[in-house]
Design a protein around this nucleic acid. Structure first.
Lengths: 192, 192, 192, 192
DNA sequence: CATGAATGAGGATTCATTCAT
DNA sequence: TATGAATGAATCCTCATTCAT
């Protein structure tokens, strides 16, 4: 078990190093050797855990996406009302994007870049299902506007990415009040 | 003058090739040699127009951003009412993002990536001033919510980028009706 | 003894894997890890039986060469006449090259390549002594042409290697009749 | 033209370096960097002339094979009698193998190794056609034994490779007398 | 201005070998 | 004895950039 744990630790260190370095330099400007150094392993060791560089980012993407959605839906359950559920989820997402800034940045970069391959991208999308289900329910109940999920997402969730990046760049500081305003804007844009 | 003209053509060809190749492969996976080939010039020629690769993308970014904002504000003038002005601008932006897909994709990739240097990024932001001025006026007139410009942008303009990317990926198709719904959502989220 | 037996099995498995893989890929394109995998042992285990990769091929070469000559001289004894002895040996060699194709291919590759070190090469040559002795006797008796052993070998034995390789490559098929013709050619070229 | 000549010179230097280094170390033990150094160019320059390492040896093989057969058939013409023609060709081949030792060694290594890819091997074989035609004629005229070309080659031409290698290894010295003996053996083995 | 040949620096990946267990 | 994980040292190849023409 000690051995297994050590292996898991190494894999995690590699994933973490990947996130940080890709955030700061971009995928192709991040050499495997630097990732290895930051994770305190030999470059060759990376290839014990990942097939190649592409596989490393793909898996990192999926890992982070899973962590993100796990966090997002942690306190939500399907017995909640639509509005309550949405608020819970939205605020968890906001929380994640602001607290787990590195992870969120990484996802944003992956989502606007040809750096992740299509299968991994699809894999990452799956995890959002509970939110889509919630919206489906909301539309049936007449609480949520009968719009395409893409529109709902674009107006209620995606803006958080923009705000997170703006904050990361130091352009402006998101405080509690902003969050509340943002939530109101999000809810307004999708509620009937 | 013929010579100058020829030069501008080459510069444009290079910028265009950069956009297309970076869109498809990402910045670092796009070799100068390929850009040169697509623009029908020698690799060495690039260095007559640009200092280096970084300068090439920076200038491409600024060019595209300028084109984008020029298009956005083309039919707007400051004598319009705030609501009318916003609608005009918003729809021009939507138009641009959907028609000039390549350019819009390129901007989206630049905005979520450490691929553009800070001065160029700042340079690109300047061009948005007319929209910020409009919002300022709107806030004074009590027509626009008294929110940070970042929030206003995040909720009224940025969602278009998400929708454009989704469409580019073939995930879904934005039609006239979607656009109108999106506009309503945008306006709802910022109007008082 | 069970343990010792097991060890010999492993050594043999390693030697065998080496032959097959080197035949198909060449010495340097055959990683130790693949040899290990094919022999069903850990890479580290190889180093319990061989000092390093060079030692592994060297020993494999000597092993195969020994097996080859053992086979060649198995049915020969010095009381035979020169012509009878030569025919016996030649046909055993032909037999070996065609039946133990893998081994013969391996020897051919070793003999035309800087892949075996000099001491091992010398070691391998020793085994041919009975044939050289036979020729010596033949020359004394006036049955064999008084030529250098190198010439005798080049014209009577070595052609078999060429034919074996041609056959292995599928270029042509050696049948009984060919063998007999080849034997005649061999004998003609060295008999007085 | 100066430029073109310079290019050809570089290509030739690379081919020559490849022959020498592969002869001494084998294909896989010869790094591109060493080839580059011996040819006095940068490693990157190799890739202006050859697609990759495999292409480099393939082309080297074809080059050398062409040079070899050009030499072999230089003084032969089809109006000669079969026996005269064979002698001419055989002696030119012997000449080549002993004088252009490096080239001949290289061919021998290529021919017994999975180091050349099949298309290039086929390409190399084509060049032998005039000899095969001569044999064909000889068989018709009843001068040459009605054997497979493979057998004829194995017994009349191939032994030279063995002798050349033996000599290169310093095992023995081929002098004029040996050559004549070898020629007799060769001719004896194929003539009716 | 324009070029294509040339290159040095660097990056992904492999592999023989070792070592803790 | 046997192993699988770990690694440093290569190795092939690419690419931004330069330079002679």
């Amino acid at each position: 078990m000690a051995k297994l744990q050590k292996s898991i630790d190494k894999r995690n260190a590699l994933v973490k190093a990947t996130i940080e370095l890709v955030n700061n330099n971009g995928f192709h400007a991040t050499p495997m050797s630097k990732i290895a150094k930051m994770a305190n392993v030999s470059p060759a060791t990376i290839y014990l855990y990942f097939e190649n560089k592409q596989d490393l980012v793909n898996q990192t993407y999926i890992d982070v996406k899973a962590e993100y959605t796990k966090y997002a839906f942690e306190t939500y359950n399907e017995s909640m009302s639509v509005s309550e559920g949405f608020e819970i989820i939205w605020k968890r997402i906001a929380d994640f994007k602001l607290k787990e800034c590195e992870e969120a940045m990484f996802l944003a970069q992956c989502d606007n870049t040809p750096m992740i391959d299509e299968p991994s991208r699809q894999e990452g999308i799956k995890h959002l299902q509970p939110l889509l289900d919630l919206w489906e329910r909301g539309k049936k109940e007449g609480v949520i506007k009968p719009l395409s999920d893409y529109l709902l997402y674009a107006y209620s969730i995606n803006p958080l990415s923009f705000l997170m990046i703006a904050q990361k760049r130091g352009a402006f500081q998101l405080d509690k009040k902003h969050i509340e305003q943002a939530y109101q804007a999000a809810w307004n844009s999708i509620k009937v």
